[in-house]
Amino acid sequence: MAKDKKKGIIGEFKEFIMRGNVMDLAVAVIIGGAFQKIITSLTNDIIMPLITLITGGLDFNNWFISLDGSHYKTLAAAQEAGAATFNYGSFITVVLDFLIMAFVIFMMVKGMNALAARMVPKKEEAPAEPVTKICPFCKSEIDITASRCPHCTSEQPDMEPDTEE
Score class of each variant (00 low, 15 high):
28 A>I: 09
140 S>E: 01
89 G>L: 15
128 A>P: 05
108 M>V: 07
88 Y>R: 14
7 K>I: 10
57 G>D: 13
22 V>Y: 11
11 G>K: 03
98 F>P: 03
77 A>L: 10
113 N>Q: 04
135 C>E: 01
74 T>H: 07
71 H>C: 05
33 G>N: 05
23 M>C: 12
83 A>F: 03
39 I>V: 12
71 H>G: 07
134 I>H: 00
128 A>N: 07
109 V>C: 04
80 E>V: 05
24 D>L: 12
127 P>K: 03
103 F>N: 06
25 L>T: 15
75 L>W: 02
52 T>Q: 12
25 L>D: 15
39 I>M: 07
11 G>E: 08
52 T>H: 05
138 C>R: 00
63 W>D: 03
103 F>K: 05
60 F>R: 04
123 K>N: 09
105 I>N: 05
69 G>E: 01
21 N>D: 10
115 L>M: 06
56 G>T: 10
114 A>R: 06
98 F>C: 09
4 D>C: 09
126 A>V: 13
98 F>E: 09
61 N>Y: 10
93 T>F: 14
39 I>Q: 01
87 N>V: 13
62 N>M: 08
33 G>E: 07
42 L>I: 12
114 A>P: 01
92 I>R: 14
54 I>E: 10
136 P>G: 01
75 L>T: 05
2 A>M: 13
83 A>T: 06
73 K>H: 13
103 F>S: 08
45 D>R: 12
69 G>N: 01
101 M>P: 02
126 A>I: 12
138 C>K: 00
129 E>L: 14
117 A>H: 02
26 A>N: 09
118 R>F: 08
86 F>L: 15
46 I>G: 14
49 P>Y: 15
106 F>E: 01
66 S>I: 01
67 L>Y: 04
12 E>T: 08
83 A>K: 01
15 E>H: 06
85 T>V: 13
20 G>K: 14
98 F>N: 09
12 E>W: 09
70 S>R: 06
100 I>Y: 06
50 L>R: 10
33 G>F: 03
96 L>W: 08
125 E>G: 03
65 I>G: 02
112 M>D: 07
89 G>P: 13
43 T>E: 09
134 I>A: 00
116 A>T: 05
126 A>K: 12
52 T>C: 08
131 V>K: 13
101 M>H: 08
133 K>V: 00
3 K>R: 11
84 A>Q: 10
